[in-house]
Write a protein that binds this DNA or RNA. Structure first.
Lengths: 251, 251
DNA sequence: CCAAGTTGTCTAGTAGAATAGACAAGTGTG
DNA sequence: CACACTTGTCTATTCTACTAGACAACTTGG
C-alpha cells in the first residue's frame, strides 16, 4: 500500500501561503535567494529533481516554478545541462535618438513590442502641455510592452495627438514599432527633447505585465519627443523593471 | 447559445496575479481598502452578490474571500444581514502578571492557545543569559499560537530550562496554558521582570500562523519572567499582529 | 563513444478552484 | 405579518494544480 501524498509540502518547508499556488511560492523563494545573492550570476541551480526532493514536491511543480523565474528574466535553462542564474542587466542607453529595438539588438538580443491596449482620451493638463495642445484635446494613448528575448523589459504609455495620429494603434499593430508607425505618417526623423527619470514600486497591473512581483522597484522614465523642427510629437511614460535594466544617460 | 465564461476576471479588473487564487486576490484587495480606511470600522460591506458582480466572479468565490478576511480578523458576518468591518484592536495590557487568557477573557472574547511545535535545543548566548544558564545548556523551546475568538492574535516562542521543565511541551498540550503548565511543576506564582517591544515585518512562517499577509507589520515583545524569588523562569519572544492588538504597558 | 546526469515531453489520475443554479434560513422594514 | 434582501448550504460541472511514472533528447566528462 502506497502512502497517499496529501498534496502540499511534506512537513518542514513552510513557505506555503494560503491561496497561493505551490509553484509560485517556490518561484518567489528562489527569487529571494537570487536577489539576496545566495545564487550568484551564472551559477547553476540544483537539478530539478534535487530541488523537488528538497521541497518535497513533484518535479513538474519545480519546472513550473523555473518557467516562472525564466519569464521574470532571472534564469535561463539549457537542455541536458541545467538552469542558470542570469542577473545581468540590459544596458539601456538613453540619448536623443534612442530606439528600443536598436538598443536590444545592439546587446545581442531579440526585440519584441506588443500593443496591450489603446484608447482615445482627452488630454490631461500635463499631457496637453507636453504636446503643445489644450487640456481636453483628444489624444491617442498606447500601452506597449517591450521584451528582449521574451523577457519583458518595459511597459510604456505613449500619447500622440489624435488630430494627426488617429489610427496609430492600428498602424502599430502592423508595424510593431513606434519609429515605423510614425514613418507611416510621413515622420521620418524625430529626437528626444527631454527625459525625466524617477523610481517607484510596481502596481498590480504593471507587475503583471512585466512579470514582476508586486512591490519590486521600477524605473519610471518620462520623455517628450519632437520632430526635427522642434514640434512636439509624442510623450511617453515608461516603466522599466529595475532588476533587468540599467539606464545610461548620454550627456 | 450561452457565452462561455473563460474562468477568471472579465476584463477591467486586473487584480489577478499569476499563481494566486482569485479569492485570495479579492481578499487582499479588500484588506487594502479596509486598512486604507475606505471601509470604516463597523461599516457594512456590499452584499456578496453585489461584490461578485463588481469583480465579475461567482458569489462562491466572494464568499471564500470573505471567509479569509474573517480568519484575518478584519471582518465578521451576520446571517441575513451582511458582512461588517471590524478593525478595533484588542487591548493587550502588559504588566507584571499578564496572562493571555485573562486579557482576552476580560475583553469578552474566547481565548485559545495551541502548541504548534517544540524541541530541545542548546541555549544561544542571548537565551542563556536571560535564563541565567551557560551558553549551550539545553532548553525547551515551545511555539505557541494564541487566538481570541478563533482569530490568531500572537505567536510566541517560549524558552524554559530543560533541566527542570523537560516535559513542558507534553504538559502544555494537556493544560493549554503556560500558567497551568508551570503549576504542574509546582510553580504557583511568577512575574514579569522586563519587557522589550519592537516592530518588524512578518516573515512567511509567522504570517502563515497569524493568518496575515507577508510583510504586514508585527509587534515583537521579548520578556523574561521570574519566580517570586527573582529566579529566571522563562523567556519569550512573542510576535503580535499589529493590526489586531494594541499593547498597553503599565507604568 | 559510452554512461551518467539533466532537461523536455507525454499520459494519466486526484484534489481543489471556480462556475452555475437553486433553495433554506435569517434579518429588517413597512 | 408579508416581503425584499442577505447569508448559508447543497448539487453538479468544468478547468487547473499537483502528483506519478516513463521515456526521449541533450550535455558533459571520462
Amino acid at each position: 500500500m502506497l502512502t497517499k501524498t496529501p498534496r502540499g509540502l511534506s512537513g518542514k518547508n513552510h513557505l506555503l501561503e494560503r491561496g497561493v499556488m505551490l509553484w509560485r511560492c517556490i518561484a518567489d523563494d528562489f527569487e529571494q535567494l537570487i536577489l539576496i545573492g545566495k545564487h550568484e550570476n551564472g551559477a547553476r541551480l540544483p537539478a530539478e529533481s534535487e530541488i523537488a526532493a528538497k521541497y518535497g514536491v513533484n518535479r513538474h511543480t519545480v519546472r513550473r516554478a523555473m518557467a516562472e523565474l525564466g519569464a521574470r528574466g532571472l534564469v535561463y535553462t539549457e537542455r541536458g545541462s541545467g538552469t542558470y542564474v542570469k542577473t545581468d542587466k540590459l544596458d539601456y542607453r538613453i540619448g536623443e535618438r534612442t530606439r528600443f529595438s536598436e538598443v536590444v539588438a545592439a546587446a545581442g538580443h531579440e526585440a519584441e513590442g506588443r500593443l496591450q491596449g489603446h484608447r482615445l482620451e482627452p488630454a490631461s493638463e500635463e499631457i496637453a502641455q507636453r504636446l503643445g495642445l489644450n487640456t481636453g484635446d483628444m489624444v491617442v494613448r498606447l500601452e506597449i510592452v517591450r521584451a528582449a528575448d521574451r523577457v519583458p523589459i518595459s511597459v510604456a504609455t505613449t500619447w500622440l495627438s489624435a488630430d494627426r495620429y488617429n489610427d496609430a494603434a492600428k498602424v502599430f499593430r502592423q508595424t510593431r514599432s513606434i519609429t515605423r508607425t510614425l514613418a507611416h505618417y510621413g515622420v521620418t526623423s524625430y529626437r528626444r527633447k527631454w527625459t525625466r527619470i524617477s523610481a517607484a514600486f510596481a502596481d498590480a497591473v504593471d507587475a503583471g505585465r512585466l512579470r514582476l512581483s508586486v512591490h519590486r522597484p521600477i524605473l519610471v522614465v518620462e520623455s517628450v519627443n519632437v520632430t526635427e523642427n522642434g514640434e512636439p510629437l509624442l510623450t511617453t511614460r515608461g516603466r522599466f523593471a529595475a532588476d533587468r535594466v540599467a539606464l545610461t544617460v548620454e550627456s
